[in-house]
Design a protein around this nucleic acid. Structure first.
Lengths: 122, 122
DNA sequence: TCCATGTTTTTATAGTTATTAAATTATCGA
DNA sequence: TCGATAATTTAATAACTATAAAAACATGGA
């Protein structure tokens, strides 16, 4: 990750609403959450949320896909991991195994999560 | 870590100069680097650097100690680790061991770093 | 085709942040 | 105590960012 991208990602996360959105999506996993439900859960006005989602997307921290009328947002774990690697890069001049970065990999995750409230195909 | 603190830390890092400073200090390890040398290495005007260091300090990402006329700044690894834990908290709804948090611990690091250019007691 | 739903875009404004130059504070050595 | 060094603080300004309200766009179903 280059410094410019890292600054963009950090700027994206450096805002209360966007940080809430991002953490919600990190916790939601690969399945994602429709914009409307994010707005509802976090009590953010739709245009405001849209503005923030655009920034998270531009920073490479979230992804979107369309499902009918809904736009479903999901965390981009690669982006998140890349950012953390960048922050801790060459920590303590590469001194020790104690300074290393484990990563989050939802692919190899054993999902033990409750079903979504609404059925998937809505 | 509470959301307000996390936003403060992310805001502190979301700026080119401050990100450079922070990474420099993360790589420098517990020993730290005097403000003047940071300014020199990163080619930042002293008042500008001072402004940025104050923000990093306020955000709990760096620590200072005085050594004679020099103020020596060092990364606060606890703050950094706390931030990364916050970002990845309950990743994928706690689904898997694959989603766990990076930590850096300079205390238990086997330091294999070259000596500083100038002697320590200057 | 028309309406309702879900979401984004536009526009305007209030608030925040980064930078520079000048002034100030703290420490050390003669 | 005086001058030099290391760093911070103050003050002013230019640039950026978040929010709200209104309008526009895209999709699906009657």
């Amino acid at each position: 990750m280059d410094p410019t991208t890292a600054v963009a990602a950090l700027s994206a996360l450096a805002q209360e609403h966007r940080l809430q959105v991002f953490r919600l999506l990190v916790q939601a996993g690969a399945e994602g959450v429709p914009a409307g439900r994010i707005a509802e859960r976090l009590k953010i006005a739709p245009p405001t949320l849209s503005f923030h989602l655009a920034q998270l997307k531009h920073a490479g921290l979230v992804q979107v896909r369309r499902d009918g009328r809904s736009l479903i947002y999901a965390a981009n774990y690669e982006g998140m991991n890349g950012l953390m690697e960048f922050l801790t890069d060459n920590c303590c001049a590469g001194a020790a195994s104690a300074c290393r970065v484990p990563l989050c990999d939802p692919q190899s995750a054993t999902v033990v999560r409750r079903r979504a409230r609404r059925v998937a195909g809505n």
